[in-house]
Design a protein around this nucleic acid. Sequence first.
DNA 1: AACAAGACCTGCATGC
DNA 2: TGCATGCAGGTCTTGT
Length: 275
Amino acid sequence: MPELPEVETVCRGLAPILEGQKLVRVVQRRADLRFPLPERFAERLEGRRVLSVSRRAKYILTELDDAEVLITHLGMSGRMFIGEAARPPDAHDHVILETEAGRAVVFNDARRFGMMDLVPRAGLASHKLLRDLGPEPLGNAFDGALLSARLEGRRTPIKSALLDQRVVAGLGNIYVSEALHRAGISPRRSAATVAGRRAELLAPAIRAVLEEAIAAGGSTLRDYVQASGELGYFQHAFRVYDREGQPCPGCSGACRIRRIVQSGRSTYYCPTRQR
DNA sequence: AACAAGACCTGCATGC
DNA sequence: TGCATGCAGGTCTTGT
Protein backbone atom coordinates (compact mmCIF):
# COMPACT_ATOMS: atom_id res chain seq x y z
CA MET A 1 0.00 0.00 0.00
CA PRO A 2 2.50 2.62 0.91
CA GLU A 3 4.03 5.00 -1.57
CA LEU A 4 6.57 7.70 -0.87
CA PRO A 5 4.36 9.95 1.29
CA GLU A 6 3.23 7.09 3.50
CA VAL A 7 6.76 5.77 3.89
CA GLU A 8 7.98 9.27 4.69
CA THR A 9 5.29 9.60 7.34
CA VAL A 10 6.20 6.22 8.80
CA CYS A 11 9.82 7.37 9.01
CA ARG A 12 8.83 10.56 10.79
CA GLY A 13 6.87 8.51 13.28
CA LEU A 14 9.68 6.03 13.79
CA ALA A 15 12.42 8.60 14.25
CA PRO A 16 11.46 9.87 17.74
CA ILE A 17 10.82 6.33 18.94
CA LEU A 18 14.03 4.80 17.68
CA GLU A 19 16.71 7.44 17.27
CA GLY A 20 19.27 7.30 20.05
CA GLN A 21 17.66 4.21 21.49
CA LYS A 22 19.33 0.87 22.09
CA LEU A 23 17.40 -2.13 20.82
CA VAL A 24 17.23 -4.25 23.95
CA ARG A 25 15.22 -7.09 22.46
CA VAL A 26 14.36 -8.11 18.92
CA VAL A 27 11.81 -10.77 18.14
CA GLN A 28 11.69 -12.44 14.75
CA ARG A 29 8.53 -14.48 14.29
CA ARG A 30 9.10 -15.70 10.73
CA ALA A 31 12.13 -16.82 8.80
CA ASP A 32 11.13 -14.97 5.67
CA LEU A 33 9.19 -12.04 4.35
CA ARG A 34 9.42 -11.63 0.60
CA PHE A 35 12.97 -12.95 0.95
CA PRO A 36 14.60 -14.88 3.77
CA LEU A 37 15.77 -12.61 6.56
CA PRO A 38 19.54 -12.59 7.06
CA GLU A 39 21.21 -15.19 9.23
CA ARG A 40 21.03 -14.42 12.95
CA PHE A 41 18.93 -11.38 12.12
CA ALA A 42 17.51 -10.72 15.59
CA GLU A 43 20.77 -11.43 17.42
CA ARG A 44 22.65 -9.01 15.21
CA LEU A 45 20.16 -6.24 15.98
CA GLU A 46 20.03 -6.78 19.72
CA GLY A 47 22.19 -4.38 21.69
CA ARG A 48 22.58 -2.05 18.72
CA ARG A 49 21.83 1.64 19.08
CA VAL A 50 19.85 3.42 16.38
CA LEU A 51 21.59 6.49 15.00
CA SER A 52 18.99 7.66 12.50
CA VAL A 53 15.89 6.73 10.53
CA SER A 54 15.65 7.98 6.97
CA ARG A 55 14.07 7.16 3.65
CA ARG A 56 15.26 6.40 0.13
CA ALA A 57 12.45 5.87 -2.38
CA LYS A 58 10.04 3.56 -0.53
CA TYR A 59 12.77 2.07 1.64
CA ILE A 60 13.18 2.87 5.33
CA LEU A 61 16.85 3.05 6.30
CA THR A 62 17.62 2.54 9.97
CA GLU A 63 21.24 3.31 10.62
CA LEU A 64 22.85 1.42 13.51
CA ASP A 65 25.88 2.13 15.65
CA ASP A 66 27.96 -0.74 14.26
CA ALA A 67 28.08 0.72 10.75
CA GLU A 68 25.21 -1.41 9.56
CA VAL A 69 21.86 -0.37 8.14
CA LEU A 70 18.52 -2.08 8.48
CA ILE A 71 16.71 -1.78 5.16
CA THR A 72 12.93 -2.14 5.35
CA HIS A 73 10.37 -2.10 2.58
CA LEU A 74 6.69 -2.25 3.43
CA GLY A 75 5.61 -3.92 0.19
CA MET A 76 1.88 -3.70 -0.42
CA SER A 77 0.53 -4.45 3.03
CA GLY A 78 3.39 -3.74 5.41
CA ARG A 79 2.56 -1.62 8.44
CA MET A 80 4.39 -0.32 11.47
CA PHE A 81 2.85 -0.08 14.91
CA ILE A 82 4.24 1.37 18.05
CA GLY A 83 3.02 0.22 21.40
CA GLU A 84 3.93 -1.38 24.63
CA ALA A 85 6.40 -4.20 24.47
CA ALA A 86 3.74 -6.63 25.66
CA ARG A 87 1.34 -6.13 22.73
CA PRO A 88 -0.29 -9.50 22.05
CA PRO A 89 1.08 -10.62 18.72
CA ASP A 90 -1.09 -10.68 15.64
CA ALA A 91 -0.59 -13.52 13.18
CA HIS A 92 1.16 -11.14 10.80
CA ASP A 93 3.44 -9.43 13.28
CA HIS A 94 6.77 -10.56 11.89
CA VAL A 95 9.46 -8.49 13.56
CA ILE A 96 9.32 -6.61 16.87
CA LEU A 97 11.98 -4.13 17.99
CA GLU A 98 11.95 -3.25 21.68
CA THR A 99 13.78 -0.16 22.85
CA GLU A 100 15.43 0.56 26.17
CA ALA A 101 12.63 3.06 26.84
CA GLY A 102 10.15 0.20 26.75
CA ARG A 103 8.58 1.00 23.41
CA ALA A 104 7.96 -1.66 20.80
CA VAL A 105 8.02 -1.17 17.05
CA VAL A 106 6.04 -3.91 15.34
CA PHE A 107 6.41 -4.72 11.66
CA ASN A 108 3.20 -6.32 10.44
CA ASP A 109 2.70 -7.51 6.87
CA ALA A 110 -0.15 -9.82 5.91
CA ARG A 111 0.94 -10.41 2.32
CA ARG A 112 4.65 -10.55 3.06
CA PHE A 113 5.64 -8.58 -0.03
CA GLY A 114 7.71 -6.50 2.35
CA MET A 115 11.41 -7.01 2.87
CA MET A 116 14.11 -6.47 5.43
CA ASP A 117 17.86 -6.72 5.10
CA LEU A 118 20.74 -5.86 7.37
CA VAL A 119 23.80 -4.68 5.50
CA PRO A 120 27.05 -2.77 6.01
CA ARG A 121 26.70 0.98 5.78
CA ALA A 122 29.66 1.12 3.39
CA GLY A 123 28.42 0.48 -0.10
CA LEU A 124 24.78 0.93 0.85
CA ALA A 125 24.08 2.84 -2.34
CA SER A 126 25.29 -0.11 -4.39
CA HIS A 127 23.04 -2.56 -2.58
CA LYS A 128 20.99 -4.59 -5.00
CA LEU A 129 17.73 -3.06 -3.78
CA LEU A 130 18.96 0.53 -3.98
CA ARG A 131 21.50 0.81 -6.75
CA ASP A 132 19.15 1.26 -9.71
CA LEU A 133 16.76 3.72 -8.07
CA GLY A 134 16.10 6.95 -9.93
CA PRO A 135 16.14 10.44 -8.43
CA GLU A 136 14.15 11.45 -5.38
CA PRO A 137 11.21 13.47 -6.65
CA LEU A 138 11.41 15.76 -3.61
CA GLY A 139 15.15 16.27 -3.99
CA ASN A 140 16.68 19.56 -5.10
CA ALA A 141 17.92 18.11 -8.35
CA PHE A 142 14.52 16.90 -9.51
CA ASP A 143 13.07 19.18 -12.14
CA GLY A 144 11.61 19.10 -15.62
CA ALA A 145 14.98 18.72 -17.28
CA LEU A 146 15.97 15.74 -15.14
CA LEU A 147 12.61 14.05 -15.57
CA SER A 148 12.78 14.72 -19.29
CA ALA A 149 16.16 13.03 -19.53
CA ARG A 150 14.84 9.96 -17.69
CA LEU A 151 11.87 9.65 -20.07
CA GLU A 152 13.81 10.14 -23.26
CA GLY A 153 13.35 7.36 -25.79
CA ARG A 154 10.90 5.35 -23.73
CA ARG A 155 8.04 3.96 -25.75
CA THR A 156 6.01 2.71 -22.82
CA PRO A 157 3.02 4.74 -21.62
CA ILE A 158 3.95 7.54 -19.24
CA LYS A 159 1.89 5.83 -16.53
CA SER A 160 4.06 2.73 -16.71
CA ALA A 161 7.26 4.74 -16.97
CA LEU A 162 6.50 6.64 -13.78
CA LEU A 163 5.88 3.39 -11.92
CA ASP A 164 9.39 2.28 -12.88
CA GLN A 165 11.49 3.14 -9.84
CA ARG A 166 14.55 3.62 -12.06
CA VAL A 167 12.87 6.63 -13.71
CA VAL A 168 11.73 8.36 -10.53
CA ALA A 169 11.92 6.78 -7.08
CA GLY A 170 8.93 6.60 -4.80
CA LEU A 171 5.85 6.99 -6.96
CA GLY A 172 3.26 4.23 -6.91
CA ASN A 173 -0.06 3.51 -8.51
CA ILE A 174 -2.04 6.18 -6.67
CA TYR A 175 0.27 9.15 -6.95
CA VAL A 176 1.11 8.47 -10.58
CA SER A 177 -2.57 8.85 -11.46
CA GLU A 178 -2.83 11.93 -9.26
CA ALA A 179 0.27 13.60 -10.70
CA LEU A 180 -0.73 12.97 -14.31
CA HIS A 181 -4.14 14.41 -13.62
CA ARG A 182 -2.66 17.49 -12.06
CA ALA A 183 -0.32 17.96 -15.01
CA GLY A 184 -3.10 17.39 -17.57
CA ILE A 185 -1.17 14.59 -19.25
CA SER A 186 -2.87 11.44 -20.50
CA PRO A 187 -1.58 8.27 -18.86
CA ARG A 188 -1.69 6.58 -22.28
CA ARG A 189 0.73 8.99 -23.87
CA SER A 190 4.10 7.53 -24.76
CA ALA A 191 6.75 8.53 -22.23
CA ALA A 192 8.99 9.82 -25.00
CA THR A 193 6.40 12.45 -25.93
CA VAL A 194 6.34 13.73 -22.35
CA ALA A 195 10.07 14.38 -22.45
CA GLY A 196 10.61 18.07 -23.11
CA ARG A 197 7.90 20.64 -22.59
CA ARG A 198 5.42 18.35 -20.86
CA ALA A 199 8.03 17.18 -18.39
CA GLU A 200 8.29 20.80 -17.26
CA LEU A 201 4.65 20.53 -16.18
CA LEU A 202 4.87 17.02 -14.83
CA ALA A 203 7.87 17.39 -12.52
CA PRO A 204 6.30 20.13 -10.39
CA ALA A 205 2.99 18.26 -10.42
CA ILE A 206 4.71 15.18 -9.00
CA ARG A 207 6.40 17.27 -6.36
CA ALA A 208 3.19 19.05 -5.38
CA VAL A 209 1.14 15.86 -5.13
CA LEU A 210 3.72 14.21 -2.89
CA GLU A 211 4.28 17.27 -0.72
CA GLU A 212 0.56 17.74 -0.19
CA ALA A 213 0.14 14.13 0.82
CA ILE A 214 2.98 14.36 3.32
CA ALA A 215 1.53 17.59 4.70
CA ALA A 216 -1.85 15.89 5.06
CA GLY A 217 -0.21 13.15 7.10
CA GLY A 218 1.52 15.70 9.27
CA SER A 219 -1.63 17.66 9.96
CA THR A 220 -3.86 14.64 10.45
CA LEU A 221 -1.67 12.60 12.74
CA ARG A 222 -0.21 13.83 15.97
CA ASP A 223 3.42 12.75 15.90
CA TYR A 224 2.48 10.68 12.83
CA VAL A 225 0.83 8.09 15.06
CA GLN A 226 -2.78 7.01 14.82
CA ALA A 227 -4.86 6.20 17.87
CA SER A 228 -4.32 2.52 17.06
CA GLY A 229 -0.57 2.95 17.31
CA GLU A 230 -0.18 2.52 13.58
CA LEU A 231 2.30 4.82 11.95
CA GLY A 232 2.06 6.80 8.80
CA TYR A 233 -1.29 6.13 7.19
CA PHE A 234 -3.87 8.82 6.92
CA GLN A 235 -7.06 9.62 5.11
CA HIS A 236 -6.28 11.58 2.03
CA ALA A 237 -8.64 12.80 -0.64
CA PHE A 238 -7.63 11.72 -4.11
CA ARG A 239 -8.81 13.59 -7.16
CA VAL A 240 -8.97 10.61 -9.51
CA TYR A 241 -7.67 7.45 -7.85
CA ASP A 242 -10.48 4.93 -7.23
CA ARG A 243 -13.07 7.44 -8.41
CA GLU A 244 -14.26 5.81 -11.62
CA GLY A 245 -17.47 7.37 -12.90
CA GLN A 246 -17.29 10.35 -10.59
CA PRO A 247 -17.03 13.92 -11.87
CA CYS A 248 -13.56 15.18 -12.62
CA PRO A 249 -12.67 17.84 -10.05
CA GLY A 250 -10.73 19.75 -12.70
CA CYS A 251 -13.61 20.06 -15.18
CA SER A 252 -16.82 21.95 -14.74
CA GLY A 253 -18.64 19.86 -17.30
CA ALA A 254 -20.16 16.43 -17.32
CA CYS A 255 -16.99 14.47 -17.90
CA ARG A 256 -16.38 11.47 -15.70
CA ILE A 257 -13.24 9.85 -14.39
CA ARG A 258 -12.35 6.74 -16.35
CA ARG A 259 -10.57 3.59 -15.23
CA ILE A 260 -8.31 1.70 -17.59
CA VAL A 261 -5.76 -1.06 -17.05
CA GLN A 262 -2.12 -0.52 -18.01
CA SER A 263 0.54 -3.14 -17.39
CA GLY A 264 -2.01 -4.98 -15.33
CA ARG A 265 -2.70 -2.08 -12.99
CA SER A 266 -5.61 0.30 -12.68
CA THR A 267 -5.17 3.82 -13.98
CA TYR A 268 -7.68 6.60 -13.30
CA TYR A 269 -7.84 9.73 -15.39
CA CYS A 270 -10.01 12.38 -16.96
CA PRO A 271 -10.10 11.94 -20.75
CA THR A 272 -11.13 15.56 -21.19
CA ARG A 273 -8.52 17.27 -19.07
CA GLN A 274 -5.63 14.89 -19.73
CA ARG A 275 -4.21 14.87 -23.23
C1' DA B 1 17.62 -3.29 -24.07
C1' DA B 2 12.96 -2.40 -23.25
C1' DC B 3 8.74 -3.98 -22.24
C1' DA B 4 4.70 -6.96 -20.70
C1' DA B 5 3.30 -10.67 -18.11
C1' DG B 6 3.79 -13.76 -14.34
C1' DA B 7 4.89 -14.64 -9.73
C1' DC B 8 4.80 -13.92 -4.85
C1' DC B 9 0.74 -13.89 -0.53
C1' DT B 10 -3.36 -12.71 2.24
C1' DG B 11 -7.64 -10.23 2.98
C1' DC B 12 -11.65 -8.12 1.52
C1' DA B 13 -15.80 -7.00 -1.29
C1' DT B 14 -18.93 -8.86 -4.43
C1' DG B 15 -22.05 -12.06 -6.52
C1' DC B 16 -24.18 -16.52 -7.01
C1' DT C 1 -24.12 -19.41 4.87
C1' DG C 2 -20.56 -21.10 1.81
C1' DC C 3 -17.89 -20.69 -2.15
C1' DA C 4 -15.76 -18.65 -6.25
C1' DT C 5 -13.96 -14.64 -8.28
C1' DG C 6 -11.52 -10.52 -8.73
C1' DC C 7 -9.09 -6.89 -6.82
C1' DA C 8 -5.56 -4.51 -3.75
C1' DG C 9 -1.27 1.61 -2.86
C1' DG C 10 5.03 -3.31 -4.92
C1' DT C 11 8.73 -5.18 -7.26
C1' DC C 12 11.55 -9.11 -8.68
C1' DT C 13 11.91 -12.54 -12.32
C1' DT C 14 10.89 -14.46 -16.67
C1' DG C 15 9.95 -14.45 -21.45
C1' DT C 16 9.27 -12.08 -25.82
